[in-house]
Design a protein around this nucleic acid. Structure first.
Lengths: 134, 134
DNA sequence: ATGGACATGGAATTCATTTTCATCTAGGTT
DNA sequence: AACCTAGATGAAAATGAATTCCATGTCCAT
């Protein structure tokens, strides 16, 4: 029925897998194009959207609201700590938050509760290091 | 130096105060306009942006990425549980999450860590009510 | 009232994302 | 092998929030 495994989709998947950190659809498209992989921007967006729906990727939004995607490491969903300077991302243990979210759900009577948690900071490598005046 | 208290700004502030829940800049603009308050869309955006920078409002993004603003109830920042159906929002106690975020900060060496937490669900009033068979 | 610093807002611009739609393709069928 | 067709593709156009331009307006001190 759905989902043929086309050359294009495979390329998007592979491109995504090659990224350790979060990438935007635009970046991924540029990356693939630069790599001489012929894929349409529309297809990149479509594939990413489908992946998101299927739960194959984690998604965050950067400051400008642009969607950033990252292949999901393991089973359940993951939360990340992202460096605002270099963009490097690392998954963080969020068990506490999951429990908290469940608790809120139970306490409020709301159903189908979903949560988004985004952490950003400056990683050790991007620290304003040597206070070189100026 | 900055911030004259102009009629327009006051109107935006007042309009925002009159909203119990989150509103987008566009909605607020429409609301003010409908109220015969002459304010430019640009000014609404500007005022909201300034408010955000000054920490006077809490901001979330809806599914489409649109920014939604809500006057901040009290002191520190707040997290909310928003109904995806009617848009009603209620602040939730997020002490646990704050602690967790601090802990992550300490454990990773990242500095200037900021966090965004968004909860959404279906409130009791919007429940798919009568389970009219399948 | 005069000057200038800041504020305003309509129009134009930017830019990610989505739609449209004509065309192509995979892969099953005869 | 030739054929069919649901699904996939992608260039171009559309959408829409948010921002930038910039000419004009407004408040305040001198």
């Amino acid at each position: 029925m759905t989902s043929h495994t086309t050359r294009q989709r495979a390329a998007v998947l592979e491109g995504l897998a090659g990224c350790k950190d979060f990438v935007s659809a635009q970046e991924l498209y540029a990356l693939l194009t630069a790599n001489r992989t012929r894929v349409g921007l529309t297809t990149v967006y479509r594939t990413l959207r489908d992946l998101e729906a299927a739960g194959g990727v984690d998604v965050v939004r950067d400051d400008s609201g642009e969607r950033l995607y990252r292949q999901r490491p393991d089973g359940g969903h993951q939360h990340y700590l992202i460096c605002r300077s270099c963009g490097h991302s690392r998954p963080v243990d969020s068990g506490v938050v999951e429990e908290w979210a469940d608790h809120i759900t139970a306490a409020t009577g709301f159903t189908a509760v979903e949560h988004t948690v985004e952490l950003s900071g400056i990683c050790t490598g991007c620290q304003p290091s040597p206070p070189k005046d100026r």
